[in-house]
Amino acid sequence: MIVITLTKVPPSLRGDLTKWYQEIQTGVYVGNVSARVRDQLWDRVMRDIGNGQATMVYNAKNEFGYQFKTTRKDRRVVDFDDIPLMKRLNTLEEPVKLGFSNASKYHRARLSSRKALKPEHPGHSERSTQLVAIDIETTGLDAVKNQIISIAAFKSIGIKECQHFDAYISIDQPVPENIVKLTGITDSKLKDEGIELVDALRSLKKFVGNLPIVGYNLEFDDKFISLGFKKYNQSGIDNKMIDLMPLVKKANRFLDNFRLNTVLKKYDISNEHPHEAYADAQATLALAEKLIKNGDLVI
Rank of each mutant, 00 (worst) to 15 (best):
144 V>M: 13
59 N>A: 06
104 S>I: 00
79 D>W: 14
287 L>G: 04
148 I>Y: 05
171 I>K: 07
278 Y>Q: 11
225 I>A: 12
281 A>L: 13
16 D>I: 07
33 V>E: 04
233 N>S: 12
227 L>G: 03
70 T>G: 07
185 I>R: 08
84 P>T: 06
24 I>C: 10
83 I>R: 04
269 I>H: 10
11 P>K: 12
285 L>N: 06
148 I>P: 11
94 E>H: 13
203 S>D: 11
264 L>H: 11
34 S>M: 09
85 L>A: 06
226 S>I: 02
229 F>M: 03
97 K>M: 09
195 I>Y: 11
137 E>W: 14
86 M>R: 01
142 D>R: 04
283 A>H: 11
281 A>N: 11
204 L>Y: 13
42 W>I: 07
219 E>P: 04
208 V>F: 10
246 P>V: 03
25 Q>K: 11
100 F>C: 13
189 K>G: 13
125 S>T: 01
200 A>G: 12
13 L>Q: 08
218 L>G: 06
123 G>P: 00
237 I>F: 13
266 K>P: 01
235 S>G: 12
239 N>D: 02
152 A>D: 14
149 I>H: 10
242 I>S: 05
298 V>D: 02
120 E>W: 02
191 K>C: 09
73 K>G: 06
241 M>C: 08
167 A>W: 05
157 I>E: 02
276 E>L: 13
195 I>T: 14
255 L>E: 04
9 V>Y: 15
13 L>Y: 08
284 T>H: 12
189 K>T: 15
231 K>C: 12
187 D>R: 11
83 I>D: 03
292 I>Y: 01
32 N>A: 10
107 H>W: 10
119 P>Y: 00
60 A>G: 03
64 F>S: 00
241 M>G: 06
172 D>A: 14
282 Q>C: 15
133 A>G: 09
30 V>A: 03
38 R>T: 02
85 L>C: 06
293 K>H: 10
26 T>E: 15
223 K>G: 08
121 H>G: 00
58 Y>R: 04
288 A>N: 07
44 R>P: 02
32 N>G: 01
297 L>S: 02
63 E>R: 12
242 I>M: 05
70 T>E: 05
77 V>F: 10
48 D>E: 15
149 I>R: 07
194 G>A: 14
64 F>K: 07
69 K>H: 02
1 M>Q: 01
265 K>N: 09
225 I>G: 13
100 F>S: 10
248 V>E: 04
255 L>R: 04
113 S>K: 12
116 A>N: 00
259 R>C: 07
28 V>R: 15
76 R>S: 14
36 R>P: 04
47 R>F: 15
276 E>R: 15
236 G>C: 07
17 L>M: 09
299 I>R: 00
215 G>Y: 08
122 P>C: 03
53 Q>A: 14
190 L>M: 07
